[in-house]
Design a protein around this nucleic acid. Structure first.
Lengths: 118, 118
DNA sequence: CGGTATCCAGAGTGATACTG
DNA sequence: CAGTATCACTCTGGATACCG
């Protein structure tokens, strides 16, 4: 089974605002990462994303669904719950995310230096 | 020497609005590509970018400069001109652009299908 | 639990016109 | 040639509160 998501999965200090690469909207890249190990519920996603509001999470998830990256499944029952999972197409984004991470690891220092020296 | 930029370098029909990956602002990725073969002048860049306005081109170039991706050089003289060139750091973005292009070639059809089937 | 409704501030983008 | 100035507008994202 999938373990709970680390609430500190995303460093709040990490200057993601500086990142010159972006997958989808502001949160899409992080959401995709959250789904890497398996399906997650709406409220599970709120944990590592922390400062996201439900409205924005919904919007971002709907957008990922529209593009075929994510599937939404409603499990009815006494306590209904909803699960979001990556499709194969969504999984293909993970490669891109890795490329972005690799770039950041290699070059973010240089970018930050460039910004600070004026 | 570098050849003139193809005015039709970027397909106006190509649904770049659909692309889920983005480098910098709306135009930054295209600008970086324009600079791949060597330095270019402001007015040279306007040609393939076509619908960009000077104000927006300036803003995007300044942003690329701030981040250390591009250098701006003023050549004084009777007819002054300005050249923009990629730095090594800027060149490192080309790998990322390639990764994005590779992803698009492999998966954009699936994305477009997903959108159209609702 | 998994959302929606409303309102709002700021950023990004563009049209148009003008300048050293 | 290489920009700048002004204005306007849309889009994103967030605060807050409420709903089935």
């Amino acid at each position: 089974m999938t373990k709970p998501l680390d609430p500190e999965m995303f460093d709040p200090v990490c200057p993601s605002g500086l990142m010159p690469i972006r997958i989808g909207d502001k949160w899409a890249g992080m959401i995709v990462q959250c789904l890497e190990e398996g399906p997650r519920r709406f409220s599970e996603l709120l944990v590592p994303l922390r400062t996201i509001t439900p409205k924005v999470l919904t919007k971002s998830l709907r957008s990922l669904e529209r593009d075929g990256f994510v599937v939404r499944t409603v499990h009815a029952g006494p306590a209904r719950h909803v699960e979001y999972a990556l499709t194969p197409l969504g999984r293909s984004l993970l490669e891109l995310l890795d490329a972005a991470r690799a770039w950041a690891e290699a070059h973010m220092d240089a970018l930050i230096d460039a910004r600070e020296n004026q």
